[in-house]
């Protein structure tokens, strides 16, 4: 019996030790740092209580970053959900060339946010005349637009949202496609007998409810990943002079607060803890509201 326990730890021990060292220890350490004045140091002596938390919460840049996150989520989550579901429905009913279409839409998954942002920033939405969108607009008699630096109206959102949409849609399409393939064809046959052919009605009453589990998973994953957005914001908007004062999501704020010129790890840690709490609350509320919906269809 004892030997078995030993074998369990031989198999899981290396991973568990690593997880403790590289997940639990940093978290606890960071929690400690958040109560100290930790400018440029990881072993601070000056206990400041909740001052770092007060500073973070009072910082308008921090609250603005939460606002940016909410706005970004409102754009990207429904857009990605609708596009990936739409692609899945189109691909699913196609008999001819199905594998080809699936591969094309899935292909961007192999692209990094850095590369995609580079293409978007320097080619598609380049603010000067030779940008692709501006070239097309000019062909139709429009004029060139500086997409990333126009704040009234905030046109930069179009650039930011389309990058992520292109990168992510194929990934979630695959999830929906699997959901669709798993669906019993019996349901549609029964519906056809009741006079509901393929079309909006069978989608509304059969397909959509059957995709419920997938939908919940996709919406949660989309929200969590929107919260972690950093790469495309940084690569689309920052330049040698720094980052513009608008469109700073939480991680960009944290990056500059903790690792920028100040190197204030106390503030950075407090910010990280607050953000962890925010995302935890967000996830729980979202999961709850979906489950509530389950009881009252």
């Amino acid at each position: 019996m004892q030997r078995r326990h030993l074998w369990f730890w031989i198999f899981t021990g290396p991973f568990v030790i690593g997880l403790v060292v590289f997940s639990y220890v940093p978290l606890i350490w960071s929690l400690t740092l958040s109560f100290f004045d930790a400018h440029n140091t990881v072993t601070p002596k000056n206990f400041v209580g909740l001052a770092n938390y007060a500073a973070v919460l009072k910082d308008p840049a921090f609250t603005a970053s939460l606002g940016t996150f909410v706005l970004f989520t409102l754009f990207i989550v429904p857009a990605t959900y609708a596009l990936s579901l739409g692609l899945a429905l189109l691909v699913h009913r196609q008999k001819f060339g199905r594998a080809f279409f699936q591969s094309v839409f899935f292909l961007p998954t192999a692209c990094s946010y850095v590369v995609a942002s580079l293409i978007w920033r320097l080619s598609i939405f380049n603010g000067v005349r030779f940008g692709l969108v501006n070239s097309v607009a000019r062909a139709f008699g429009g004029s060139s637009v500086a997409w990333l630096s126009t704040t009234h109206p905030p046109l930069y959102w179009l650039v930011i949202v389309t990058v992520r949409l292109w990168l992510q849609a194929g990934f979630y399409m695959v999830l929906f496609l699997t959901g669709l393939t798993r669906m019993p064809t019996m349901l549609y046959e029964a519906a056809a007998l009741d006079g509901a052919g393929p079309g909006w009605r069978s989608f509304r009453h059969i397909t959509f409810p059957q995709l419920r589990t997938t939908s919940v998973a996709v919406l949660l994953l989309l929200t969590i990943s929107a919260f972690q957005a950093f790469d495309e914001f940084y690569n689309l908007l920052s330049n040698s002079r720094g980052y513009p004062p608008y469109a700073r999501p939480p991680l960009v704020y944290l990056y500059y607060a903790a690792l920028g010129q100040g190197q204030d790890l106390g503030i950075g840690s407090a910010g990280a803890i607050v953000l962890a709490l925010v995302i935890a609350v967000f996830t729980i509320v979202q999961a709850r509201s979906f489950r509530l919906g389950e009881k009252h269809p």
């Binding site: 060292v21 639990y24 991680l251 944290l254 790890l265 910010g271």
Partner: peptide, 19 residues
């Protein structure tokens, strides 16, 4: 192990950087 999934990895980059 599963509990660590609740912590978004991006939020831990400051603590991990510290370590």
């Amino acid at each position: 192990i599963v509990a660590t999934l609740m912590i978004p990895p991006a939020v831990t980059f400051v603590p991990s950087f510290v370590l």
